Deep mutational scan, measured.
Amino acid sequence: LRTVEMKKGPTDSLGISIAGGVGSPLGDVPIFIAMMHPTGVAAQTQKLRVGDRIVTICGTSTEGMTHTQAVNLLKNASGSIEMQV
């Protein structure tokens, strides 16, 4: 596991798309980074990659989380965001 910290302002975009989660079209698979926009906050860290499994978001485990719950957690996060992948 590695921990990645990002700074995100209220109008900034992380610039990632995620897939997976409980009840997702892919089945109940762990949440992972499906796409990254090169100008997004996540890409700027140069520490995240497409395919990385997201284990925690700001200390909250993604295990058993639906896709929608994970998306909302990421969208609503601002300031210092910590992810374990």
Rank of each mutant, 00 (worst) to 15 (best):
L1V: 14
L1K: 07
T3E: 04
T3G: 03
T3W: 02
E5M: 15
M6T: 03
K8C: 14
K8V: 15
G9H: 01
P10D: 12
P10F: 09
P10C: 09
P10M: 10
D12C: 08
S13F: 14
S13I: 12
S13C: 14
L14S: 02
G15C: 01
G15D: 06
I16T: 01
S17R: 15
S17P: 03
I18T: 03
I18G: 00
A19L: 08
A19S: 11
A19G: 15
G20I: 01
G20L: 02
G21D: 03
G21M: 01
V22W: 11
V22R: 12
G23Y: 00
S24E: 02
S24F: 05
P25L: 09
P25T: 10
L26W: 11
L26E: 14
G27F: 06
D28R: 05
V29C: 11
V29S: 09
V29K: 08
P30V: 02
P30Y: 07
I31V: 11
I31Q: 00
I31Y: 01
I31E: 04
F32G: 05
I33M: 04
I33R: 03
M35L: 10
H37C: 11
H37S: 14
P38Q: 08
T39H: 13
T39M: 13
T39E: 15
T39Y: 11
G40A: 04
G40K: 06
G40C: 05
G40R: 02
A43R: 05
A43D: 00
A43Y: 12
Q44F: 00
Q44I: 06
T45K: 04
T45P: 04
Q46I: 03
L48K: 04
R49C: 12
R49P: 02
V50K: 07
V50Q: 09
V50E: 09
G51P: 00
G51Y: 02
G51R: 04
R53K: 12
R53S: 10
R53F: 09
R53D: 10
R53C: 10
R53Y: 11
V55S: 08
I57D: 00
I57P: 05
I57G: 04
C58Y: 03
C58G: 13
G59I: 05
T60Q: 15
S61M: 03
T62D: 01
T62A: 05
T62S: 00
E63R: 11
M65F: 01
T66M: 04
T68S: 13
T68H: 12
Q69K: 09
A70C: 13
V71T: 14
V71R: 13
V71A: 14
V71I: 13
N72Y: 08
N72I: 05
N72S: 13
N72V: 05
N72W: 08
L73D: 03
L73A: 10
L73E: 06
L73T: 08
L74H: 06
K75N: 15
S78V: 12
S78D: 11
G79P: 07
G79C: 07
S80I: 14
S80V: 14
S80R: 14
E82L: 09
E82S: 14
E82Y: 10
M83Y: 02
M83V: 13
Q84K: 11
Q84H: 00
Q84M: 07
Q84N: 00
Q84L: 06
V85W: 00
